[in-house]
């Protein structure tokens, strides 16, 4: 028996919009810790890890650890039928091959049930090692989204370099080249407008912009994004989900041949 009641149902809607273009089918894991997912894109270049902690739900009942295979496009279709202010409850019975999403309007005058078929997914779970990152950049998520979008009109890859001068995003393409440098800026009115750069060692890595642009679909989840970089390791692009958890995207770097 599974029953997860999320008062801020819009969070789940936003999570699906953030990941459904990257991953087609995925197993959602439910345990005492929370509702989570780990999945790779079809080419195994990027990985998404989601955690919605049990404490963030108004009601959280999960009698035993369960893994439920879902088609994210179908799940997104169903969640789009929930209003932005709706309370969403996820319900499942042991041994059932379906899951039910219940949407309640804030005034309780409309209650809808959507039943979705589950699927068997043979997915690989990867162990993500704890890493010491050479540099961690915290910046407004909208700014990061803008940079990725702007650069992708010039080139296909972005070089992200962190030095003591700041963080530089560079690209090069047939029509020319572009460099965008952000300096640390903590003298802002609101903390969510700050750019904070922690650097232990200078680092420079190259990534495919197509994936970065896909990650920025998580922008509505959080005003800030954290980008953690280490030489020859996948970058981590993290969007925190208010008081509940996170969506983390890992992207393998492009390596010089």
């Amino acid at each position: 028996m599974l029953e997860l009641r999320l008062v801020q149902g819009s969070l789940l809607k936003k999570v699906l919009e953030a990941i459904k273009d990257l991953v087609t089918d995925a197993n959602f894991d439910c345990s005492a810790t929370g509702f989570s997912l780990q999945a790779m894109d079809s080419s195994h270049v990027a990985l998404v890890a989601l955690l919605l902690r049990s404490e963030g739900f108004e009601h959280y009942r999960c009698d035993r650890n369960i893994s439920m295979g879902m088609n994210l496009n179908n799940m997104s279709k169903m969640l789009k039928c929930a209003g932005n202010d709706d309370i969403i409850t996820i319900k499942g019975d042991d041994g059932s091959d379906t899951i039910t999403f219940m949407f309640e309007s804030p005034t309780q005058d409309k209650i809808a049930d959507f039943e979705m078929k589950l699927m068997d997914i043979d997915s690989e779970h990867l162990g993500i090692p704890e890493a010491e990152y050479h540099a961690i950049v915290r910046m407004p998520s909208a700014e990061f989204s803008r940079i990725c979008k702007d650069l992708s009109s010039i080139g296909d890859t972005v070089v992200i370099s962190v030095t003591k001068e700041g963080v530089k995003f560079s690209t090069r393409g047939d029509i020319g080249a572009a460099n965008i440098v952000l300096r640390q800026n903590t003298t802002v009115d609101k903390p969510e407008e700050a750019t904070i750069i922690e650097m232990n060692e200078p680092v420079s890595l190259t990534f495919a912009l197509r994936y970065m642009n896909s990650f920025t679909k998580a922008t509505p989840l959080s005003s800030m994004v954290t980008i953690s970089l280490s030489s020859e390791l996948p970058v981590v692009v993290e969007y925190k989900i208010a008081e509940m958890g996170y969506v983390r995207f890992y992207l393998a770097p492009k390596i010089e041949e």
């Binding site: 790779m40 270049v45 990867l126 492009k254 010089e256």
Partner: peptide, 14 residues
């Protein structure tokens, strides 16, 4: 030129 690496090169299956 540069080559796209895979995530499975860095993280092991568990």
């Amino acid at each position: 030129g540069s080559k796209q690496s895979m995530i499975t090169t860095f993280f092991n299956k568990i």
